[in-house]
């Protein structure tokens, strides 16, 4: 069922290793967003964990929409999409591959953000960061699922790439609430058990949107 998944993923990653475009852009954008947040809110104070969590998720959302756009636009730019659609690969498989690529891009940006976050907010590198990992991973799965499905609009509509965040942010709002609340609690030193409700919500969001994307992708990926 997932025939063709490996080659697409390998091709995108090889392209990225050779050019490094997406990594450089995404990492710098997300770190810059973090800098903006720190400058605007100040690093210290009682609400340190909340500001840090908010900065993390703001950076992730914008890195996510850009990463997913890159993953799909590279196909459209050089006319690869036609070949991909003509090949006996299911659209759902293309979705799965692109979702994985987008997730890897987001994870890269996210890790860069986390490192800078620790430095800027004087968090400790130990347990809190480790406990943040499940929240972070559950968050980027849902975000990547949503962005990959909707990023197909860019290149087809005027200002499509700009329209993507406009569509993604309201849809992602529930996961954003859950993710930033859970991250803030974890960064403030609470155990994972305290945020289990938020984790469940993130999990439900992921399952829903990965399934929806997997089923609906064939309707949005085609050559005009």
């Amino acid at each position: 069922m997932l025939e063709g998944f490996g080659p697409i993923l390998r091709k995108d990653l090889r392209l990225e290793v050779r050019t490094g475009e997406s990594t450089v852009v995404l990492v710098s954008i997300s770190v810059l967003i973090l800098v903006v947040m720190v400058l605007a809110f100040g690093p210290a104070g009682a609400r340190r964990a909340e500001v840090a969590a908010g900065a993390l998720w703001t950076a992730l959302i914008f890195a996510g929409t850009m990463g997913a756009t890159r993953a799909l636009l590279s196909e459209r730019e050089s006319g690869c999409l036609r070949g991909l659609l003509l090949s006996p690969v299911e659209p759902a498989t293309i979705y799965a591959a692109k979702l994985s690529v987008a997730m890897i891009f987001m994870a890269q940006a996210g890790i860069a953000v986390l490192v800078v976050l620790v430095l800027f907010f004087n968090l400790d590198f130990g347990g809190a960061l480790l406990r943040l990992l499940p929240v972070f991973l559950l968050g980027i799965v849902g975000l990547a699922a949503l962005c990959t499905l909707l990023a197909t609009v860019s290149g087809r509509v005027r200002a499509g790439a700009m329209l993507l965040p406009v569509m993604v942010v309201p849809l992602f709002a529930p996961a954003l609430i859950a993710g930033s609340k859970a991250s803030a609690a974890v960064l403030a030193g609470q155990p994972l058990g305290a945020v289990i409700t938020w984790l469940k919500l993130l999990g439900a969001f992921d399952v829903l949107f990965v399934t929806a994307g997997y089923l609906l992708f064939e309707h949005v990926i085609f050559e005009d």
Partner: peptide
Amino acid sequence: RFAAVLGIVGVLDIPIIIISVRL
């Protein structure tokens, strides 16, 4: 077709929005 997908995804999102915001 794209708009149809966006509409469907939006409605799927409503229950999760309601739960998350209520929490």
